[in-house]
């Protein structure tokens, strides 16, 4: 089973990756640190998962070489579960990529990373409501300190595909 870590540049994918696998790949505070993919392995509930840290991408329409790599990885792993890592201070943007991933039929889990930053900036996110609407597990995380990573892992097996047509109808009725 393969897990892909996807998200915008500089949202903390590599930090999540290092926490999940115990690896030592480079984490920095600037967009575009990761330009190639790195994979590692981890055990979740006794099952071995292969985890790939995908270079940051804004959408699934690549505009540079690193984003091209990201799209190729996504398309190569049709049966993967995707952890969409979102910057909690920029939820809307992150959801755009999450939608694209769901539309392509991938089961997904959303990590609302940099949760501490959002708290500091007085941004309130109703996590359970978000879960309810999207029907996708949503977990607040602070990857550099490891907060929420355990819960993120627990949710991975419960990720399922989402019917976009239903989702669309549901959201339109809100």
């Amino acid at each position: 089973m393969t897990i892909l870590l996807m998200g915008h540049p500089n949202v903390g994918k590599s930090a999540v990756f290092n926490r999940l696998t115990g690896a030592n790949i480079t984490e920095s505070n600037y967009p575009g640190t990761t330009v190639d993919f790195t994979e590692g392995h981890t055990f979740i509930a006794g099952k071995e998962y292969r985890i790939i840290d995908v270079p940051g991408t804004f959408s699934t329409e690549p505009k540079d070489e690193a984003e091209r790599v990201a799209l190729d990885i996504l398309e190569e792993h049709e049966d993967a579960v995707v952890i969409v890592v979102i910057d909690s201070t920029k939820v809307e943007r992150g959801l755009y990529l999450a939608f694209e991933v769901l539309e392509r039929g991938y089961p997904a889990v959303i990590a609302l990373n940099m949760w501490d930053d959002a708290e500091r900036q007085n941004i309130n996110i109703d996590v359970s409501r978000l879960e309810e609407i999207l029907e996708v597990p949503v977990v607040p995380t602070v990857a550099i300190s490891g907060k929420g990573i355990y819960r993120l892992v627990e949710k991975i097996p419960s990720a399922t595909q989402v019917d976009i047509k239903d989702l669309k109808e549901k959201i339109s009725e809100l």
């Binding site: 959801l95 755009y96 500091r120 007085n122 996590v127 339109s172």
Partner: peptide, 19 residues
């Protein structure tokens, strides 16, 4: 996509004053 996201965000995210 943006229209849907807008609705979801309005329902779940509140921006307070930034210090």
């Amino acid at each position: 996509r943006w229209r849907l996201i807008d609705r979801v965000a309005r329902e779940t995210v509140q921006y307070g004053a930034e210090k």
